[in-house]
Simulated scan of single mutants.
Amino acid sequence: MEFLKLDLQYFAADEKTEKATPKKREDTRKKGQVPKSQDVNTGFLLLLVFGILFLLGPSMKDTMTGMYEHAFRENMLRDVTENQVHTVFVEMTWEISKVIAPIMGVAIVAGVASNLLQVGVMFTGEPLKMDLKKLDPIQGAKKIFSARALVELVKSLLKISMVGVITFSIIWANKNHMMNASQKSVEAALSFFGTTTIIMGLASALALLILSVIDYTYQRYDHEKNIRMSKKDIKDEHKNIEGDPQIKSKIKEKQRQMSSARMMSEVPEADVVITNPTHYAIAIKYDEERSDAPIVVAKGVDFVAQKIKEIAKANDVMQVENRPLARAMYADSEVDQPIDEKFFKAVAEILAYVYRLEKKM
């Protein structure tokens, strides 16, 4: 029964129930894993491209017809030489570029803007790295028959249905004009079919943008679900950030040892060591250049106190027994800091006593 309880606790701790931490989100972003809907890109692209066609359509038509007129009126009469072919090629390329450049420019702007709206500025090479797991047929089969694949299938069918219904409705509404197109001039027929195509494109783009809002919401939900963390993951992350407690304790121990060694090196320069005499030892030094008040250069209890007294004895540093003062100064004084004002009188008397003895000696 106890083993069963432990297993249940382990599985509960390992269950992905917690929201991702900021560090987890940053790590997944660096890997290129961000919520993103391709329908947003497609909708923006179609909307801007057909919008530019609607605005610049007449000038594009004039450019194309002018190019054909020039080709049949002048280019057909030129001699077929290398220079003439080169000249015709350059002229035709320039005229076609004037038509294509606005569309290409708008397409690039649409692609960049739609990605910036979704993921912001992000540069990462992680998705381009070679990953042999992607070649695993079992994992591939799991993706094909996963819930995400089913959602993508439903979404694709919905898009096809929406675009189909929109285009069919517009064509059906203009069926009479289409039937009469043969009775119109070429220019009028081209204008009608161009306008109808642009209307279908804009309507389809708006429908895709509406659908993309739903898709992006789902992508965010799915992304949040995939990056969820277990309580164990959060604890492990916290350990990695803050450091393992055992390692931290070893570092602190090492720092204490270094601090103690540095403190002991100051004892030979002390003026006096105030003792308990068995449990406490406080080494005091008065240096007018460092401070107006005496400074505690070392302090310790038990083993450290004995070590301070041994070093003081070896270096002929005077030791004075004052039990209450030693206890009080150990509690209220810090190493490398001036003593508290309340100890001035007592310490001054001890230093005066020490200086008198040293002068007699």
Rank of each mutant, 00 (worst) to 15 (best):
K133S: 14
D336L: 13
K313V: 01
D79G: 01
K36H: 11
P58E: 03
D244F: 00
I227Y: 07
Y280R: 08
E358L: 08
Q319S: 08
L158G: 08
L53K: 00
E349K: 08
V154H: 03
E2G: 05
D271I: 09
K235Q: 15
R327G: 08
D136A: 04
W94E: 04
Q9G: 01
I199T: 03
K31M: 07
E26S: 07
V40T: 10
V213Y: 04
N83V: 10
V85H: 00
L208C: 06
V80R: 09
A346R: 01
Y216Q: 11
V186P: 00
S37N: 07
N41L: 03
T63D: 02
T17A: 06
K235E: 15
L128M: 14
R228W: 07
S204I: 06
F89L: 01
E288Q: 14
L211S: 07
S169Y: 15
I284P: 01
P35I: 12
I108H: 03
K23F: 00
S265Y: 05
M122E: 10
S333L: 12
V154D: 12
G201F: 01
V49T: 14
P338D: 13
T65D: 11
K342V: 09
A331T: 15
I199V: 05
K345T: 14
S291Q: 04
A101I: 12
F193G: 01
V154N: 03
N115M: 10
T93A: 09
L77R: 01
S265K: 15
S191C: 05
M361I: 08
M361N: 13
T275E: 08
Y218C: 03
M104R: 01
S146L: 04
F50Q: 09
